[in-house]
Write a protein that binds this DNA or RNA. Structure first.
Lengths: 341, 341
DNA sequence: CTGAAAGCGCTTACAG
DNA sequence: CTGAAAGCGCTTACAG
């Protein structure tokens, strides 16, 4: 019934007539500086037996002793959001390569939960934290910084904290550029939540480019919303109402889910996506290409962002100083903005 | 620069002129049986100071001492698969309620990775494991069982190991029933991968019901595939080719992603979803309802499945014996099978 | 090159 | 009700 106890350094040492410290040096690396941990022959015997017994260092003992957990906590608004799942996959992958362990927690994008989860992670003695849910309207990050817990942000910038994100403003401009080329002059924005800098920057870039082109986007056609399909749907309904007799000929939604909702709403207004009205999203979710009218979107290197964020955090933990990283987005044009069937 | 060292039991004990063991009893619970850990007054002083110092028990020391990590490892094929993300959210939620920590790892549904990840988790001294990627063609689970590591399966059954899943066969039958009622006699199945029992059981239930109704599904119209949209698309292409002059009037795909791919392929054959050809999926992914032609699907209580799986595992870890749980699925009828626009 | 010792922070019988 | 001790498995200066 009782599970077999895992082999310990002591067990190996005893069997070999050596001291546990020698075994430790061989198996888990000699202290800084020293070249070798033991004579070739001894090392060989130790390694062979360790292998045979399936020795795995006890991470709790190691962490307790070294005050390093090799653990990284990751906070995301919602793991079921594809974008975050992909970011996390990148983080996990890069962590594994460095021998770090990670865990994720959902914060539902609300502050009390963010706070509770952060405490939980710190309680687990993480070496560092990655926040994918940075908000502009909260002191949480400043407080964590004051406690000197190393952290970086990913995807969503906030404050001046180090972040790995895509150049959202540029992405917004790309969509504007594309729609301008297609001749759209009256456009609207499904702008996402105001507390998320991703949403704000994408909107800003888009609006800026349209202003430069001489077709400023009317304020009432820039409508904030949640990031999900329901949010996109509601925002679009309000846009249609505000626009009245002159509905926009193109819709920019700051993420793909909102874009799908926006398209649904437009369809209910009797508009054919890609023909009567152009719709563009952001993130280039795997589904964007698979929709009946494939969705024009801005591809964001989410997996790479996750990898880089972990790298940045590892640097920070290692005492190196770090700066933010901004990855270039890429416009992917599909039928939703180029005339459908 | 150096991060503030967290408060320890010793620090509290010293400040209060008490022994660390007394503080431990008060803060982290008295040993089994004992009613109280200390006199009311002492306990009060301890709790107050602990609060003030923001004491958090060091989990590594605790785990090292008790040989219990309160850690659960979860293995999923891919976290970016919405279904798995939702299952994991359920697991995490239930774990948090019990003071357990969880972490997820992707196994990409391939055996070497499953094996490597399992070793990694065991190396981290998990108290138990949850596999969401059980395969029928592998000895891995039997080996883990032989090592007496507690585990349960979720979503996908395999072997006779305890599992929390939905009644996939019943789900398949429900779809068949519905399509029969709509008058479909020539139907095909996008059957998913053969190594996944979910796929096999859904297919089996569907095929069984059609056989009972007197319209056996021709073998060449049951085509295995991957679970993703590409898989659905390819399987459907093969179905169309096999069917020749008599294409099926309805398509059952064993999950929603495959169904979306199937619909895409059908559309390219000039068929209008919901009118020329019915399409049904499985899982009722949040997107199913949002598609231009909303997708008929079988709702699976994925979040609840995750919660129950964690509960089962906790029982197992606690030494209680457990049995499998099968949750009822529910058919959600939408336009993709009831005639579209 | 190898050993001996101390100690990370906790829990838990055992005394008193 | 509280204290003293042992020990979980490891790492790391310090000797020799």
């Amino acid at each position: 019934m009782a599970r077999a106890r895992p082999a310990t350094l002591k067990a190996i040492a005893d069997q070999l007539g050596l001291h546990v410290s020698t075994v430790s040096r061989v198996l888990n690396g000699p202290p800084e500086g020293s070249e070798r941990a033991a004579s070739g022959a001894t090392a060989e015997r130790i390694r062979r037996l360790a292998d045979e017994l399936g020795y795995r260092r006890n991470p709790h003992a190691k962490s307790l002793r070294t005050a390093r957990s090799d653990l990284v906590g990751v906070l995301v608004p919602q793991l079921a959001d594809l974008v975050l799942a992909l970011v996390y996959e990148g983080i996990e992958e890069a962590a594994a390569e460095r021998g770090l362990s990670t865990f994720v927690m959902n914060t539902r994008d609300d502050e009390p939960t963010q706070r509770a989860r952060t405490e939980l992670a710190i309680g687990r003695r993480v070496d560092g934290l990655i926040f994918a849910d940075g908000r502009e309207d909260t002191e949480l990050l400043a407080e964590v910084a004051a406690r000197e817990v190393p952290f970086v942000l990913v995807n969503r910038p906030a404050g001046d904290f180090p972040v790995v994100a895509c150049d959202n403003r540029a992405g917004g401009r790309m969509v504007a550029e594309h729609l301008l080329e297609r001749g759209h002059q009256r456009v609207a924005v499904v702008a996402g939540p105001a507390y998320a800098r991703t949403a704000r920057e994408r909107t800003a870039g888009f609006v800026e480019r349209y202003r430069e082109a001489g077709f400023p986007v009317p304020e009432e056609l820039v409508v904030h919303s949640r990031f999900d399909t329901g949010g996109g749907r509601e925002a679009t309904a309000r846009i249609m109402q505000a626009a009245g007799a002159e509905p926009p000929t193109a819709l920019f939604a700051v993420n793909d889910f909102a874009a799908i909702g926006a398209a649904g709403c437009a369809r209910e207004h009797g508009l054919l996506i890609g023909r009567d009205i152009a719709v563009a999203g952001f993130n280039d979710t795997p589904l964007a290409a698979e929709l009946p009218v494939p969705l024009t979107s801005v591809r964001v290197p989410v997996h790479e962002m996750g990898r880089r964020a972990l790298g940045l955090l590892a640097d920070l933990i290692g005492g190196r100083s770090v700066g933010s990283v901004h990855l270039p987005p890429e416009l992917v044009v599909r039928a939703s903005t180029t005339g459908g069937a």
